[in-house]
């Protein structure tokens, strides 16, 4: 228990003193995971509306597969992206392996199914009458999508929050394709993993506390939007 307490106070201390190395790692975690969340949301949310509003063969199968992808271990997505972008892989020529850019791509791939699946569920909860009314008033596809997304905004923002949570907290993918390079691809989760393997358990706990605080701040911000929108 002592260790936990010391880790907690050390974490607060590092935050209050704006320790430059910790701030840099925390900033990078935020930048990478927020970028991934925005990219994934810009693709997944509109796609959810398209899938929800149209009926086509294989729709049920697409939704099932999307939901199954929620459970894919991050390290498996990491391996997949690694094999694609490794110098010996098909996209190796882009020279993106062990860069923050590839971490954004990897995290976006990781969370897009989650946001897509949850957004589809969110839209399914909207009363069918809204869509019918909008259509009967002569609304086009885009307008209908706007109406239904607006009705489901609470749950859609929740889906985006979940996506961010999965991105910022994962470690397997970040280590596999980022390499945990100091000052370049090191994020909070990979720093925690490193400090643990170095035996710096208190520092590892401290970093965990900082991640928690960042997540708290982001969630407070997003739920304000959720309630205002």
């Amino acid at each position: 228990m002592d260790e936990l307490w010391r880790g907690f106070t050390q974490g607060i201390g590092l935050l209050v003193s704006l320790d430059p190395e910790v701030m840099e790692v925390a900033g990078r975690s935020l930048l990478i995971s927020l970028s991934a969340t925005i990219i994934a949301s810009l693709v997944a949310v509109p796609l959810a509306a398209v899938i929800h509003l149209n009926s086509f063969p294989g729709k049920r199968a697409i939704i099932t597969v999307t939901q199954a992808l929620f459970s894919v271990p991050t390290v498996v997505v990491g391996l997949f992206v690694f094999v694609l972008f490794s110098s010996a892989g098909p996209l190796g020529g882009l020279n993106l392996i062990f860069t923050p850019t590839l971490m954004v791509i990897g995290q976006a791939l990781l969370i897009a199914p989650l946001i897509l699946g949850l957004a589809i569920s969110a839209l399914s909860g909207v009363d069918r009458a809204y869509v019918d009314t909008a259509r009967s008033l002569g609304a086009g596809g885009l307008q209908v999508a706007g109406v239904i997304l607006r009705e489901a905004r609470f749950a859609v923002v929740a889906a985006v929050i979940m996506g961010f949570g999965r991105a910022v907290s994962e470690v397997g993918l970040a280590i596999m394709i980022g390499g945990n390079i100091k000052g370049f691809t090191r994020v909070i989760t990979t720093a925690i993993s490193l400090e643990t393997s170095k035996g710096e358990l208190e520092l590892a706990i401290a970093l965990g506390i900082i991640l928690l605080i960042i997540a708290l701040v982001i969630n407070i911000g997003l739920s304000r939007v959720q309630q205002r929108a």
Binding site: E24, G27, R28, L30, L31, I32, S35
Partner: peptide, 10 residues
């Protein structure tokens, strides 16, 4: 994000 981690994308 860009301000907090402006050196993020070295």
């Amino acid at each position: 994000a860009a301000l907090t981690g402006c050196d993020g994308f070295g």
